[in-house]
Simulated scan of single mutants.
Amino acid sequence: MTEGNFVDYVKIHVESGKGGQGSAHLRREKYIPKGGPDGGDGGRGGHIILVANSNMWTLHHLKFKRHYRAGHGEHGSKQTSTGADGADIYIQVPLGTLVINTETGEKMKELMEHGEELVIAKGGKGGRGNNHFKSSTNQTPRYAQPGMDGEEGDFTLEMKVLADVGLVGFPNAGKSTLLSVITAAKPKIANYEFTTLKPNLGIVEYRDHRTFVMADIPGIIEGAAEGKGLGHYFLRHIERNSTLLFLIPADADDIRGQYNILLDELKRYNPELLDKDKLVAISKSDMLDEELKAEMKAELDKDFKGIPYLFFSSVAQLGLMELKDTLWGMLNGTSVHEV
């Protein structure tokens, strides 16, 4: 999937169908010149329904079609025949799509399971035919109910990427490079900040044909939690990752300082993010010789007490299997030791 095709935020306008009108027909047949009321009910108007689809990864298909109108119900007819219901409109969305009422700001539901449905605009009820209104005192009612109007509204759809591991780091920390090396994903890679403007997903192949999903999320900058830079645009994608992989380059001036800034941005956005499993990975470690790496380990052992960390290099293919082993262990509840 190219970056341009990844759409994770759209607004749509929907109108459900109007209910059909009830019939005020009176039975008139040969030899029955004055039959009673036999008007049928009007059909229901069509619903607008969102459906979660596990085969979809983006809201791109909604980018150029944002108005949806369901069919109206048919009118009732003689012989108490009920009108046909209006055609429902089904809108397919990826798993992890949050539905928000744009006008009120209400978060209606997050669609998380394949086939899960949400009716966002109900069709109007069909009117009742005159057959319902006959009584001992009014045996030939000549009136019926009109159909009820449908619903109309604006909705915002926000998609949160569903991945096992989310890559967290400052711009140009090497996240896209790592994803390109250990998955089949082909993210844009360049030596400048904000190369990644949309999340990239890749499937990591592990031992014995097992796999897990990793997401490269646009780089964090200070103030992201307040919306600075790309702000909330990407932070919401981290909410669905069960494990957070913090990438900090080996040539950073203060590794623990960078980690603290990243942690603080996540905390200010959503404190619950700190409850996720965390692993610190020192990228670009091929620049370090053994002596310098030993010195850094001594410092990191003091700075990262209780927090697992490791060294790796995407370019030199160093420590990648160890990284996969550690992540797999964290995802599946096996013990993770400090390296």
Rank of each mutant, 00 (worst) to 15 (best):
L162V: 05
A163D: 05
A163L: 03
D164H: 10
D164K: 00
V165K: 03
V165G: 07
G166E: 00
G166D: 00
G166R: 04
G166C: 03
V168I: 08
V168T: 00
G169C: 04
G169H: 04
F170K: 12
F170W: 06
P171R: 01
N172R: 06
N172S: 15
A173R: 05
G174A: 06
G174M: 06
G174L: 04
K175R: 05
S176E: 08
S176G: 08
T177D: 01
L178T: 12
S180A: 15
V181F: 03
V181C: 04
I182D: 09
T183V: 07
T183F: 11
T183W: 12
A184R: 15
A184D: 13
P187H: 02
K188V: 07
I189P: 00
I189H: 05
I189E: 02
I189Y: 05
A190N: 07
Y192Q: 09
E193R: 13
F194Y: 10
T196A: 09
T196V: 04
L197E: 10
K198S: 00
P199M: 01
N200G: 11
N200K: 06
N200F: 14
L201N: 02
G202M: 13
G202V: 13
G202E: 13
I203N: 13
I203C: 09
I203Q: 14
I203T: 15
I203L: 15
V204G: 13
E205D: 13
E205N: 12
E205C: 08
E205I: 06
Y206S: 13
Y206H: 15
R207S: 11
D208C: 00
H209D: 10
H209K: 15
T211R: 14
V213D: 03
V213G: 06
M214Y: 06
M214W: 02
A215S: 15
D216A: 11
D216W: 08
I217M: 04
I217A: 06
P218W: 10
I220W: 02
I220N: 07
I221D: 08
I221F: 07
E222Q: 15
G223W: 12
G223N: 10
G223I: 11
A224F: 00
A225Y: 11
E226Q: 14
G227L: 05
G227E: 05
G227K: 12
K228W: 02
L230S: 05
L230Q: 07
H232C: 03
H232Q: 08
Y233I: 14
Y233M: 07
Y233N: 09
F234G: 01
F234N: 05
L235G: 05
R236Q: 08
R236D: 03
R236I: 12
H237E: 02
I238M: 11
N241S: 15
S242G: 11
L245K: 10
L245A: 14
F246H: 15
F246W: 13
P249C: 13
P249W: 10
D251S: 14
A252F: 09
D253T: 14
D253E: 13
D254H: 06
D254Q: 02
I255Q: 02
R256A: 14
R256P: 00
G257D: 01
Y259A: 01
Y259L: 05
Y259F: 14
N260H: 04
I261D: 04
I261A: 00
I261F: 04
I261L: 12
I261S: 02
L262M: 10
L262I: 02
L262V: 03
L262Y: 01
L263D: 04
L263Q: 06
L263E: 01
